[in-house]
Nucleic acid binder design. Structure first.
Length: 821
RNA sequence: GCCGGAGUGGUGGAAUUGGCAGACGCGCUGGACUCAAAAUCCAGUCUUCGCAAGAAGGUGAGGGUUCAAGUCCCUCCUCCGGCACCA
């Protein structure tokens, strides 16, 4: 049998016509398996790097289907977003047109690779029937006070001409275009994800089947820290400064306070400050400093003295209050107590400005060292110079001090998070309009649910001005206030596209529903997603936003599960010439020529065989060639079977020869091992190598002598069923050639038969005085004695071992020896 | 700086989690077929010594535990990823 391109098309057509991958959510809910691949942003054509994602997802889906699950594997489009708009500006094509063209092209690609989706569930986030429900979600959040507008210092990308969420700023640069991000004070919409910080953190422990790496990243991003918020009375003011610290045990070493430039009290203190000019200049300097400058390694600490003092509540000492550039504006209270002896940053600052350094913690191992205040010790230990608390260890002191402060009302236990609220406004056109209206009389008024969707107007000038292009569309902008019917204006910003993608996995269950975003009963049956597959670049962004939205919907009683994705798999990149594939580098491997020359199955097989799927892998055309060779070899086994002469019935009378036995053993051990590879962590590479071994052995057996027809038939049949998740077209073709009707995916996954796997060897442990001294495997055929007898002499054992296992393990004490089978 | 992950042939990578290191693929070498090439098939391919059977060494470096270590423990080196003034 020869491979021929028409095989691909033949079976792709078959799957489509027979609805092989179409799911009825009501009828198929029992024994369901929801396999989801992160939906793509439809920009240009897909290359083999993208293909890896879909091929992995498809292999899982097809494997599960063969195992008898009702597999839902849907596809859709994350279709709003900046690239479409940027293309529109550059080429004068409407974003919608550009997007739809790309979707058509990519759909054809996915189909040509034989990815088995239920296309009847396709969702497209830029279509009104979808974004209507994204707006609905916004209103739901608004109703609960979780969507709010506030003025804040926000990240602004001057190139994209829009604000960005914290999560979209990477090392001070725009995640998308790598432009240095600026800080601007703007009034923007936020989602209150911080309300869910604790839940998002706690429930990470439920995600046993997520990569540890992703969970750690989320944990760090949420950044919970526990400590104490201490009130410092300001000398001469009727005012307290709240400072958060995780090291309350160092309170007696606090020798100054430091405030961030935008602390609320700064304005008041300026009235009296003798060095007002100096302070103003200092604040201006920090304010205008680009974020990127702050992120360099040795960012110079600077500050200015306010000429005010605070009182340390524990010892009454007056300590100076400074403004300092290293105090983060958005974290904690924006004011901290500084302990130079035990914090390297405070130490650096104190040295520079000649502030007191008082050691209050001593490392436990070193009892007395003469030199103090010349170095920083940031660890815990025993308190010194701390009045009544001296001699106590850090941990105990933390608790006692917190208790004391709470009882005196001068401090309280507190928790802080690094996580900030999710900024969702974007000053761009190609996104879901935020469904809000501003009325001079009534203020901020949400659009009524019944008035959704707020349609995105299509006739728009795209040129970015820093204002949303919608600002200039009168038909859109001007609207009657829903409350008082007076002229009012719509919100012109659109939503971050991560809002669209934070709930799409729910819409797949009810994609055509016109009255609700999803049917609750069906969603509760089909979710959580059993297997989610995607790139690790979404470890924080998409995956945390989705978890947040899911938890919100759960709290509203709209879904019943608290985590949307039960298992997560993050695949690595495919690189070429050591670099990520990109058009600008000119190292893109386009799938088209591969399909032409080798067909879809060869490409799929190679992508899965390249290496562990979670790791990056280097594309090698020669490796692809190897997979092609392997498939050709496999197909020649089919020929060998078809040409095989010999009467199967007659053959069955005779007993199997050694080769046939060994081949059948290989067939069944392969089934067993591959199932383990796939049930575990998707070790497609080793699964495929096992199939190659099977083919090699089958060849050897054929070359060496006669193989019974039924044995060969079983080998070939199992071989192509095992290959089916990887090479579905060829497996279908072979399946039909072997006389089976219908699709191979309605047949079951092969089961290994234990009778062929019976071990001919036995593992024994050698005990000396009851202690395991050695374990080894002995070939039973060589020494039946080993199993029959419970105890053997040392000599005998050594003989058996010499005959059957390598010398290396012959270390036995000349004592009593037992054999445990 | 902190937190993760990883270091195995010429190369991508295996090793039932402590049990014959290098499976499988690529590449390379030799042979068969061919006027020749491609394709295909067969054999070989960690290093050293040996015609061979075989012997010895070998998983970033050094030490340790164990009958047995790529795998576990300690010290160090290198690379990759994430976070990065989070008080």
């Amino acid at each position: 049998m020869e491979y021929d391109k028409t095989i691909d098309q033949k079976w792709q057509r078959y799957w489509q016509e027979h609805g092989t991958f179409t799911v009825d959510v009501k009828a198929d809910a029992e024994n369901k398996y929801y396999c989801l691949v992160m939906f793509p942003y439809p920009s240009s054509e897909l290359h083999v790097g993208h293909a890896r994602n879909y091929v992995i997802g498809d292999a899982v889906a097809r494997y599960k289907k063969m195992q008898g699950f009702n597999v839902l594997s849907p596809m859709g489009w994350d279709a709003f977003g900046l690239p479409a708009e940027n293309q529109a500006i550059k080429r004068k094509i409407h974003p919608k047109e550009w997007t739809v063209t790309n979707i058509t092209r990519i759909t054809a690609q996915l189909k040509s690779w034989g990815i088995g989706y239920d296309w009847s569930r396709e969702v497209t986030t830029c279509m009104p029937d979808y974004y209507r429900w994204t707006q609905w979600l916004f209103l739901k959040l608004y109703d609960k006070g979780l969507a709010y507008k506030k003025e804040a210092s926000v990240n602004w990308c001057p190139s994209c001409q829009t604000v960005l969420a914290n999560e979209q700023v990477v090392s001070g640069e725009c995640e998308r275009c790598s432009t240095v991000v600026e800080q601007k004070k703007l009034k923007q919409w936020f989602f209150k994800i911080t309300d869910y910080a604790e839940k998002l953190l706690d429930d990470l422990t439920l995600l046993n089947d997520w990569p540890q790496r992703v969970k750690t990243m989320q944990k760090n991003w949420i950044g919970k820290s526990q400590g104490v918020e201490i009130d410092f009375v300001i000398d001469g003011y009727n005012k307290k400064l709240k400072c958060f610290t995780t090291r309350v045990d160092t309170i007696f070493g606090a020798t100054y306070l430091a405030l961030s430039w935008d602390h609320s009290w700064v304005e008041e203190l300026m009235d009296k400050a003798p060095n007002k000019k100096e302070i103003t200049a200092f604040i201006e300097k920090i304010k205008n400093q680009p974020l990127s400058e702050r992120l360099v390694d040795n960012f110079e600490k600077e500050g200015v003295f306010t000429h005010c003092y605070a009182v340390n509540p524990m010892n009454g000492t007056k300590i100076p209050i400074w403004l300092a550039n290293y105090i983060l504006a958005g974290y904690g209270t924006g004011a901290i107590m500084c302990v130079p002896a035990h914090d390297s940053r405070d130490y650096e600052f104190a040295k520079k400005y000649n502030l007191d350094i008082v050691e209050v913690i001593r490392k436990n191992e070193e009892p007395e060292t003469g030199n103090n205040s010349n170095s920083v010790y940031e660890g815990t230990g025993t308190l010194i110079n701390s009045k009544d608390y001296s001699g106590i260890d850090s941990q105990t002191a933390k608790e006692r001090l917190a208790e004391y402060m709470e009882s005196k009302g001068i401090g309280r236990r507190a928790v802080n998070y690094k996580l900030r609220d999710w900024l969702i406004s974007r000053q761009r056109y190609w996104g879901a309009p935020i469904p809000m209206i501003y009325c001079e009389r009534c203020g901020e008024v949400p659009v009524a649910y019944d008035d959704l969707p707020v349609y995105l107007p299509e006739d728009v000038e795209f040129v970015p001005t820093g204002q949303s292009p919608l600002t200039y569309v009168d038909d859109f902008l001007k609207v009657a206030c829903p409350k008082c019917s007076q002229p009012a204006q719509r919100e012109t910003d659109t939503m971050d596209t991560f809002v669209d993608s934070s709930w799409y996995y729910l819409r797949y269950i009810s994609p055509k529903e016109e009255t609700v975003p999803f049917v609750r009963a069906d969603v509760n049956k089909w979710l959580p997603v059993d297997q989610y597959v995607g790139g690790v670049e979404h470890a924080i962004l998409h995956l945390m936003y989705s978890r947040f939205i899911n938890k919100f919907l759960r709290d509203q009683g709209l879904v019943s599960f608290s985590e949307p994705f039960k298992r997560l798999f993050t695949q690595g990149m495919i690189v070429k010439d050591g670099a990520k594939m990109s058009k600008s580098k000119g190292n893109v491997v386009a799938p088209d020529y591969i399909l032409q020359k080798y067909g879809a199955d060869t490409m799929r097989l190679y992508i899965l065989f390249m290496g562990p799927p979670e790791k990056d892998a280097e594309w090698q055309d020669s490796g692809l060639q190897g997979c092609w060779r392997f498939l050709q070899r496999s197909l020649r086994l089919v020929d060998a079977l078809l040409e095989h002469r010999g009467d199967a019935d007659q053959e069955k009378q005779a007993s199997l020869n050694q080769q046939e036995k060994s081949l059948l053993k290989k067939v069944h051990s392969t089934i067993k091992d591959i199932s383990a590879d796939l049930d575990g962590n998707f070790q497609f590479n080793t699964a495929i190598s096992r199939i190659m071994e099977l083919v090699n052995q089958a060849y050897k057996s054929l070359n060496d002598g006669y193989i019974r027809k039924d044995v060969l038939a079983q080998t070939v049949d199992v071989l192509f069923r095992l290959l089916a998740p990887f090479t579905p077209h060829l497996s279908e073709e072979v399946n039909s050639i072997l006389g089976n009707s219908g699709t191979i995916f309605k047949r079951s996954w092969p089961q290994s038969d234990e009778k062929y796997l019976k071990e001919e060897s036995v593992e024994i442990a050698i005990l000396v005085n009851g202690k395991v001294k050695a374990k080894m495997v002995i070939d039973v055929s060589l020494s039946q004695e080993a199993v029959k007898t419970k105890a053997l002499s040392v000599d005998k054992i050594q003989n058996i071992i010499r005959d059957s296992v390598p010398k290396k393990v012959i270390y036995i004490d000349k004592k009593i020896v037992n054999i445990v089978a």
